[in-house]
Structure formats: structure tokens, C-alpha cells
């Protein structure tokens, strides 16, 4: 594992360099993460003003402001992206090049994905979250920050497993843009990226709270703004671990089949 660390770091370096090769595009990508929460904030301002209530689904308005900024940061890590990279490689046949490197394919794929996301996290999301915390006067503690980081990591693992499963399907279906769009929409909605799911009807809440999508968005965001207690947050970990296990087994079985079916024929 650690003997390959320099290779992963070199891969991360060249991946990030490649990402930021077009500076204007990258700046706009960063700007998107700042602008997009404001869209949600305007919508919720209107809702709170119109209904005249002070809390909806346990959230006060300023907590929702913070909530959507954290969603933006979490989305930087937990949006489904791995399948796009796999689909592109499988469709174009350039997966053959990845196979010529003396590193496992999945390790190359995940390290490339993670390094780019961590880089963006470090230079965009972390400063945004610090500013949001200071401006809104949120209560932070070392325990809370640690828990938040752990939850982001769990969200990333789940998103990566889901992305990997969809990406593996590309071996059989070639174009999986449609699959990804469906799963992504469901994940955003049921994960609480559009509406905190505590605002859903009770039946839906009980369904969503046993699904994996909440860990990608809702759980870290709600923890950060203090909408769920530390002990409740820890309580969700059992569900998360079960899902990680299930998704991992599915991903491994599927990839084992997909790997044998890769033929890169004609490309």
C-alpha cells in the first residue's frame, strides 16, 4: 500500500495540474460552488417570509443558509463522478492505457478522483465553511469538526461505490449517462440536497433514513449546523456501515464480471 504512495501522489499532481490547465474554466467551477447555495437561499427566504414561521422541519432560516453551503461542500466530494470517468475510458478504449500502468485500475481511478476533490475541498470548500461559520455564528467544537470530517468521508465512500457500480455497467451498456442522471436525481432529492428530508412526510422520512443517500448530503450538513445531535449522528453510522458493506460486495461482484468482459473491441 505505502510503497505505491509516491505513484498516487504523482498521479494526483498530474491530475490536478491537468484539471487547472484551463484557468478560467476552473475559476468558474469554483464560483459555482459559491453562487449555487445562494439560489437555494433565495428560495427559502421566500418560503419563510411567505409562511411567517420561524422553523420548518427543525431548521431556522439562518441554519438553512449554512445547510446549503455545507451541501455545496459535501457535493464537491459526494456528487457522483466516478462513473463519468469510467464511461469515458471504456467508451473510448483508453482504459487500455490505464491497464498499462503498474497500479491497480480501481486504485488509479479512485486516487485520481479523490485527489482532485480534496484539492478543490482544501482551497474552496474549507474557506467557504470557515466564513459561513463565522458570519452565522455557528457553534463549533473539535468533536463536531472531527465528526463532520468523518461523515464527509463516509459520504464519499458511499458516493464512490455507487459511482463505481454505475461505471462498471458501462462495460455492458456502453453509455450510462441515463443511469447516472436517474441515480443522481434520486440521490440529490432523497439525500437532502434540495430539501432537508426532515421536511418530508413521516412515511418518507422513515424510508429515507434507511437509504444510503442521506450520508452523501443530509447527515454532514445537518451535523454541521447543529440540527442533529452528536449522539444521533453517531447512531446513523450503523446504517452507513451496512450500506458500505452491501455496496462494496455489489461493486466487487459486478466489477469481477465486468473486468472479464472488457474487450475494448474496435477502439
Amino acid at each position: 500500500m505505502f510503497e505505491n504512495l509516491p505513484k498516487y501522489l504523482a498521479g494526483a499532481r498530474i491530475g490536478i495540474k491537468s484539471d487547472i490547465a484551463y484557468r478560467m474554466d476552473w475559476v468558474l467551477f469554483v464560483a459555482f460552488q459559491i453562487v449555487s447555495p445562494f439560489v437555494m437561499i433565495f428560495v427559502w427566504n421566500a418560503i419563510y417570509a411567505h409562511t411567517g414561521v420561524t422553523t420548518i422541519g427543525g431548521f431556522r432560516l439562518y441554519e438553512l443558509y449554512a445547510y446549503f453551503f455545507v451541501i455545496g461542500a459535501a457535493a464537491g466530494l459526494s456528487s457522483l463522478q466516478l462513473q463519468g470517468a469510467m464511461e469515458a475510458e471504456i467508451q473510448s478504449g483508453s482504459i487500455a492505457v490505464s491497464f498499462t500502468r503498474p497500479l491497480g485500475y480501481v486504485a488509479q481511478l479512485v486516487s485520481g478522483d479523490l485527489s482532485g476533490k480534496l484539492f478543490a475541498m482544501a482551497i474552496v470548500s474549507v474557506p467557504i465553511l470557515i466564513i459561513v461559520t463565522l458570519v452565522l455564528g455557528l457553534h463549533m467544537s473539535a468533536a463536531l469538526v472531527l465528526l463532520f470530517a468523518l461523515e464527509l468521508a463516509i459520504g464519499y465512500v458511499i458516493a464512490t461505490l455507487i459511482g463505481f457500480i454505475i461505471g462498471s455497467l458501462s462495460v455492458f451498456f456502453t453509455d450510462i449517462g441515463g443511469f447516472a442522471a436517474v441515480v443522481e436525481s434520486v440521490a440529490l432529492l432523497l439525500g437532502g440536497a434540495i430539501v432537508p428530508f426532515t421536511m418530508f412526510p413521516q412515511l418518507l422520512v422513515s424510508i429515507v433514513s434507511v437509504l444510503p443517500f442521506q450520508f452523501m448530503f443530509y447527515v454532514p450538513a445537518a451535523t454541521f449546523v447543529g440540527a442533529i445531535s452528536l449522539s444521533d449522528a453517531v447512531g446513523t453510522f450503523t446504517v452507513a456501515l451496512v450500506w458500505i458493506l452491501v455496496l462494496y460486495v455489489c461493486a466487487a461482484l459486478l466489477w469481477n464480471r465486468a473486468r472479464r468482459s472488457i474487450n475494448a473491441v474496435g477502439v
Binding site: 509516491p6 501522489l9 499532481r13 498530474i14 500502468r101
Partner: peptide, 27 residues
Amino acid sequence: GVVFGAHPQLYPSLPPIDTFNYMRVMF
């Protein structure tokens, strides 16, 4: 060493020296 003429391994947005250096670490 493997070369696929149809699938260049160079990073298109970067100069070749970056890929060469990557190979240096990789191997």
C-alpha cells in the same frame, strides 16, 4: 512497455514532460 498508437497516454492539456515525469515516478 506498451504503446497503443490509437490511445496516446499523454495528458492532452499538459506538456509531454509532465507525462514523462509521471512515468519516472510510476516506474
